[in-house]
């Protein structure tokens, strides 16, 4: 679709009218900006740009200063650098997990709904098994088996989040496959693949997309939780969850000043909060806009 058409389209107009969606989009855009221009905003010091530079060997975090505008955290890791490059990590995890789990969920849920019978029975019981575990616990188990690392975290979270999409899509496919236009397509000689791609998916995928956009925020939270538990990225890797994990020992401050190390917790915490908030606002906006009852 050309940009001119997009500007005129009903969806775009509705999006603009919705204040929260504009705030969400603005927040998200600034994160995208930060991620794209990370090498300019905060030039990397070593060859591995995700490795946070250390400004000394002292254990104690230093407060914000001219050289380190967000201060440093445990072991003198620069917080500003960690936040900027951590944005890339957050996008990497969020988008990759959603992509992988959408692919899995759409394939499995689509096949189950479309063919029904024993395929449906087997795949849906399997999703039931995965859904019966609390997501984060199962993800911890998977990472513990695979070993730590960003890729392993992505695999683990994707493995526990696809069943939701599969179920959601299956339900809609069951409705759509009984519509007359599917039968008409069959009488024209269309094969299963054609019918699935041209008729079933376009009429059943929107709820899944909405839920997925809402999920990116919580996926980043889960990844941060895994990092906090020491199961995520390697030490010194620019990852918001790990930065919070590093501030664990400094939460209570010193005996005279309980807020002595406030920046070690508040700054990465705010970054995660705003990132999750922006996706939730966008997801809500999508839901409102694409809701068929409001058409």
């Amino acid at each position: 679709m050309k940009f001119e058409n997009l500007k005129k389209s009903r969806t775009f107009k509705r999006f603009r009218k919705n204040k929260t969606s504009v705030i969400g989009a603005a927040l998200l855009l600034s994160f995208v900006f930060l991620a794209v221009f990370a090498p300019i905003v905060s030039p990397p010091a070593s060859s591995d740009s995700y490795l946070i530079p250390q400004a000394g060997y002292s254990q104690e975090p230093a407060p914000p200063s001219k050289e380190h505008i967000f201060g440093t955290t445990e072991q003198q890791y620069d917080l500003f650098y960690a936040i900027v490059w951590g944005t890339r990590t957050a996008f990497k995890i969020g988008v990759m997990v959603v992509f992988v789990s959408l692919l899995l969920g759409i394939t499995i849920g689509g096949l189950a709904g479309f063919y029904g019978g024993w395929i449906d029975e087997i795949t849906m019981r399997f999703t039931d098994i995965i859904l019966s575990f609390p997501g984060i616990v199962l993800a911890v188990v998977i990472v513990a088996m695979l070993g730590p690392g960003i890729e392993k975290v992505i695999i683990a979270i994707a493995a526990v989040s696809w069943p939701g999409y599969a179920r959601l899509l299956r339900g809609d496919v069951l409705t759509v496959k009984n519509f007359d236009f599917v039968a008409a397509s069959r009488t024209m000689g269309a094969g299963d693949f054609w019918i699935f791609i041209k008729h079933i998916l376009p009429n059943s995928i929107y709820p899944v997309i909405i839920v997925a956009s809402l999920d990116i925020g919580s996926i980043v939270l889960t990844a941060a939780a895994l990092s906090f538990l020491g199961l995520g990225s390697p030490a010194g890797y620019a990852d918001w969850g790990q930065i919070i994990a590093m501030s664990r020992n400094w939460i209570l401050g010193t005996s005279s000043n309980p807020f002595a190390y406030w920046h070690t917790l508040l700054i990465p915490g705010t970054a995660i909060f705003l990132f999750v908030l922006s996706w939730n606002l966008i997801g809500d906006a999508f839901r409102d806009i694409l809701d068929p009852r409001q058409q």
Binding site: D180, F181, A184, T187, K198, P202
Partner: peptide, 13 residues
């Protein structure tokens, strides 16, 4: 053999 359905709302994608 081609078909025309009763409900023109569900017969068109």
């Amino acid at each position: 053999t081609q078909v025309i359905f009763q409900d023109p709302y569900s017969s068109l994608n």
